[in-house]
Design a protein around this nucleic acid. Structure first.
Length: 803
DNA sequence: CATATTCGGGG
DNA sequence: GTGTACGAATATG
């Protein structure tokens, strides 16, 4: 029979002692299927004696009660970084045989290759198939092991598309979930308090289950029955994807822990929940922790400073969480406050809704990365950029008959870690306010440099001989004319992006194509970092250091040329220069751009980034010279671009969070840094005169290990110990609250329990200098206000009032 | 100065 | 059947 099939998960399974592949996915009608395929694992060896072929093929290794033998051995031609190699291919029964056989022959052969490729990925690379794309399969029906997912045996792949289907997301069943838990002062990290409600959100299914009578929710007898109902609902919906926000580290591990405590057997997909290194996998269902993907892969395209669901949803969807005071949930639960609980039910459902919509929004990006790397969605969600680059390269080895290089072992990685390379050139700005700023930058500087100068492991030469592609800072390093493997792959990638970009112009609404263009850019930009990544298979530190050397050379060249033309260069960072026009016109800048581009080699290109009526560069912390990577620009539309400040983290007092929020609001929304300064000064006065209540001063910190294991005693440890002395139970995950009391000594000596501090008896200086100032200093500095001014000590310079 | 610890996300 | 997070900030020593 013929099946049009879209798979989204691949697994290894042993059938009659042989490794086989399971592909999970849906057919055209959206029904979930499992396709089983036979696929023999293998690896390669290099030998200098043909007699070994016969010897290896007759190998028989005792492995406990088992005997491991080799299925077949034959000669094969491969390339290692462009150089032809005759190897033998050793085919095994089980994937786990590979390393046992390799260990057995390691010393008899010259070298071994591709013994460290995970089985399921090996299959996709060999077959050159990609998840989420259409496959046309010839199959036979197999007796289904259970009624949830019918199984078929694969006979032939008739056709495979190489494009992720954009409409697929409408056929797939996507389910978002979210839990709310009881919260006590013991914290939520040990997952021991009960789960109070669970919400589900899918396009045609919206529900909250709980174990109290609450309007708008399904009421179940107790938590245990609620968890059983949770499994039942998931079985009924039988989703293809389950998504949650931080669900790898919170929702699912929490559900698992409670299920274990209550004796519920948690069966969701086609097997038990697998929790491994901070990720949760479900057989037959793809679990995507959407936070992970957004934080890892999408962060460069987002402005948000925090990755809370609320902030991310606000930016990506323009929608916020329901406003509730979560610390009241447990109270409302205990007191059975129906109206409050109803609100929490709505809150719970809204979280799932936002998660669902975020998933739909980023699915094209996830799909694009799946398409480019051929990694399953689960791995794309988990992986970082070096993984993406590496699997992109690996997927392309087949085309060139290239050997996949081996991963460095632990010791090799350790020794690689010791090296650091010189990075980009960052100029020190002269502090001050500038008018009429033009910013020029190189388009995709790193990828352009790598391809233009043929930077690759196999083109690298280490002797002072050539006049070609010489590292501008070390003439012992140069790159040959013959295109290197890495360069070839990257050039193709850049060409592909250009092609898609063109196509995109004719099909504006193609979200997947747009995502692909975006992901290709990210991927291209990651090649440089990959070359320097200690875990990389195609690692080349000299390639990476030559790349940055070329980059420094080019940007410095632009700086000196613009200076020659009479522009004033005020700042430069990595790939961009900031010029002031002075008496020159914008057109003269464009002329410079044209002239420069005529002379740049290869695909190198300088671009016009933008015009800013005004910009401010501030003094560095040391007070000598300008601060790098910290400035603010006034855009033509009147809004401000502030670069180089970070938000404070949460283990600060409420007053700090409040002040920082208001300062940003005054600067970014009201464009009024001077109001922000006044506001901060006012708060400082209030702290000094003890007008701020103690509650606002409470610092919250989490205990992360048993108290007796602390060698360094911080304020939170001191407080935790005194809490314990009073009979409180302190364990890892416990939340400690304290106030820094006024008085003498180091901080931990002044850390006290909130109830032991009289009103106003907090250390004003500590809160001003260690809490408020660090939180707002960076932001205000970038707007031209120095610390002394905030404290009211210095002269009122008022640079910020220029904006 | 180096070293130890915590944070993020989640309730 | 991969394993690896990580990079910055803050306080103590």
């Amino acid at each position: 029979m013929n099946i049009k099939f879209y798979f989204y998960d691949v697994r290894h399974v042993l059938i009659d002692g042989k490794s086989c592949i399971e592909l999970y996915g849906i057919n055209k009608e959206g029904n979930k299927l499992c396709i089983v395929d036979e696929f023999n694992p293998y690896f390669y060896a290099e030998i200098d004696n043909d007699l070994l072929i016969d010897k290896i093929s007759k190998l028989n290794i005792k492995d406990g009660d088992d005997e491991i033998s080799v299925l077949s051995v034959h000669k094969i031609n491969k390339k290692i970084l462009g150089i032809d190699k005759e190897l033998i291919k050793i085919v095994c029964n089980k994937n786990s045989d590979i390393h046992k056989i390799r260990n057995e022959i390691k010393y008899a052969v010259l070298n071994t290759y591709e013994f460290d490729i995970p089985y399921t990925r090996r299959y996709l690379v060999d077959k050159q198939i990609t998840p989420l794309t259409e496959l046309s399969l010839v199959c036979d029906e197999l007796g289904s092991e259970d009624d949830l997912i019918p199984r078929y045996k694969l006979n032939e792949i008739e056709f495979s598309s190489n494009k992720v289907d954009g409409n697929l997301v409408n056929t797939l069943k996507i389910l978002a979930i979210d839990i709310e838990t009881y919260y006590s002062d013991g914290g939520i990290d040990d997952f021991t308090e009960p789960i109070l409600m669970i919400s589900f959100y899918s396009n045609n299914f919206k529900k909250v289950i709980t174990w109290k009578e609450i309007d708008g929710a399904e009421n179940l007898e107790n938590e245990k029955i609620m968890l059983e109902r949770f499994c039942e609902i998931i079985k009924e919906i039988n989703p293809d994807f389950i998504t949650g926000y931080f669900s790898d580290s919170f929702d699912f591990p929490y559900i698992k822990k409670r299920a274990d405590m209550l004796g519920v057997s948690l069966k969701l997909g086609d097997g038990p929940l697998e929790i491994k290194n901070d990720s949760v996998r479900i057989k037959g269902i793809v679990h995507i922790d959407i936070l992970k993907f957004i934080r890892r892969t999408m962060s460069s395209t987002l402005e948000t400073q925090t990755y809370s669901l609320n902030d991310v949803a606000k930016e990506v969807l323009g929608e916020k969480k329901l406003e509730v005071n979560l610390s009241n949930l447990s109270v409302a639960w205990d007191e059975d406050n129906k109206s409050d609980l109803k609100r929490f039910v709505e809150y719970n459902l809204k979280d799932s809704k936002l998660t669902y919509e975020l998933f739909m929004k980023i699915f094209p990006n996830l799909g694009a990365m799946v398409n480019l790397t051929s990694l399953i969605p689960f791995d794309v969600n988990k992986g970082g950029f070096s993984q993406f680059v590496e699997w992109y390269i690996i997927y392309n080895t087949k085309k060139y008959n290239e050997i996949i290089l081996s991963k460095p072992n632990y010791h090799e990685q350790e020794s690689r870690r010791e090296f650091r390379i010189q990075g980009a050139y960052v100029a020190e700005p002269r502090p001050g306010i500038y008018k009429d700023i033009i910013v020029l930058d190189f388009t995709s500087l790193y990828p352009s440099v790598i391809t233009t100068h043929n930077i690759s492991l196999d083109s690298l030469r280490r002797e002072p001989k050539s006049s070609l592609n010489i590292n501008p800072e070390n003439d012992n390093l140069w790159f040959s004319k013959k295109e290197g493997y890495i360069t070839k792959i990257l050039s193709e990638l850049i060409l592909m992006r250009k092609k898609y970009k063109k196509e995109l112009k004719n099909s504006e609404g193609d979200l997947l194509l747009a995502a692909k263009v975006g992901m290709l850019k990210i991927l291209a930009n990651s090649f440089y970092g990959y070359l320097a990544f200690y875990g990389a298979r195609w690692y080349c530190l000299e390639c990476a250091s030559s790349t940055t050397a070329f980059c420094r050379y080019y940007i410095k060249k632009v700086i000196s040329e613009t200076k020659d033309k009479g522009f004033d260069v005020i700042y430069s960072d990595t790939d961009s220069v900031f010029l002031t026009l002075g008496s020159k016109t914008k057109d003269s800048a464009f002329d410079f751009l044209d002239e420069t581009n005529k002379n740049l080699p290869g695909i190198m290109e300088l671009d016009y980034e933008g015009y800013y009526p005004q910009g401010l560069f501030v003094l560095s912390k040391s007070g000598v010279g300008g601060a790098k990577k910290r400035y603010s620009l006034l855009k033509e539309d009147g809004t401000m671009k502030i670069v180089g400040f970070e938000l404070v983290r949460r283990n600060t007092s409420p007053i700090v969070k409040e002040v920082q929020k208001e300062v940003l609001n005054l600067i970014l929304k009201e464009n009024s840094p001077d109001k922000a300064l006044k506001y901060v000064k006012n708060i400082l006065d209030k702290i000094k005169s003890k007008q701020i209540s103690n509650d606002e001063m409470i610092i919250t910190t989490k205990i992360s290990k048993p108290l007796d294991q602390y060698s360094a005693v911080g304020p939170h440890v001191v407080v935790a110990r005194s809490m314990e002395a009073k009979g409180n139970k302190i364990k890892p995950g416990s939340i400690v609250k304290y106030i820094i009391k006024s008085g003498e000594g180091i901080i931990r000596e002044k850390a006290s329990l909130p109830e032991e501090v009289d009103a106003g008896d907090y250390d004003s200086d500590y809160y001003i200098n260690n809490q408020i100032i660090p939180a707002v200093e960076q932001i205000l500095r970038v707007c031209g206000y120095e610390k002394d001014q905030i404290l009211g000590k210095g002269v009122q310079k008022g640079l910020g009032s220029f904006f």
